[in-house]
């Protein structure tokens, strides 16, 4: 190092400072003191030039060609995702007779129902809805009563009463807590299992 360069920077450039002279390494140009030093210091200039030569040599390495037919070999192995509407369309085309028959039946049923409703002058929309709601409510309570009877006749209440007598109140509470914990763990595992698929679906949509 000459006394001149010592006065400018006081030392030679460090390796990482030399790298700032490579394209794309520094934002903008290297700092002014470094540039002035490189202009004046033969040693650092040689270091920077050697580094630039390495960069040029590496950047000039050619791209290599795979064998002819590489793309075709890849395409023979690629299985692209098929969107749901294409799968559905393919299913419709494969079973078109069944689809046509089902469509005709549904259309005929709906059409006949609409024609019958239209031919009943005393039937209003409110009356029809009220009638439907009544029937559904009766159906629901009927199912609840039938389920309760079935449970009672199965002997399950006696079994539970007998078990509670044996294990005591603490045991029963601990058992219930265990069931709650097991349910939560199961729900957590299901969420964990479904999360990647949900994430993938969101990524695809975005």
């Amino acid at each position: 190092m000459t006394s001149d360069t010592n006065e400018r920077l006081g030392r030679h450039l460090r390796e990482e400072e030399c790298e700032l002279f490579l394209p794309g390494e520094a934002t903008g140009t290297p700092p002014e003191p470094l540039r002035r030093h490189v202009e004046a210091c033969q040693h650092c200039r040689r270091e920077v030039e050697a580094l630039r030569a390495l960069h040029v040599a590496l950047s000039s390495l050619p791209l290599l060609d795979p064998s002819p037919g590489f793309a075709e070999s890849v395409m023979a192995r690629v299985r692209l995702p098929v969107p749901w509407y294409r799968r559905a369309w393919a299913g419709l085309r494969a079973h078109w007779m069944a689809v046509a028959l089902a469509t005709t039946l549904v259309a005929a049923t709906v059409g006949l129902g609409a024609w019958w409703l239209a031919s009943q002058p005393e039937l209003t929309l409110g009356g029809l809805l009220g009638f439907t709601l009544d029937r559904l409510t009766a159906l629901f309570w009927g199912a609840v009563v039938a389920g309760g009877r079935l449970l009672w006749e199965s002997g399950l209440p006696d079994l539970v009463r007998g078990a509670a007598g044996k294990i005591g109140v603490t045991g029963a509470l601990a058992g219930m807590a265990g069931i709650v914990v097991a349910s939560l763990l199961t729900a957590g595992a299901m969420v964990k299992m479904l999360a990647p698929a949900w994430g993938a679906a969101r990524t695809t949509r975005s």
Binding site: V78, L80, R86
Partner: peptide, 16 residues
């Protein structure tokens, strides 16, 4: 993602 093989072929050609 819509199942177009030509698009896949173009990507392979581009990056092979």
């Amino acid at each position: 993602l819509k199942g177009q093989e030509r698009a896949a072929h173009e990507l392979v050609s581009r990056y092979q």
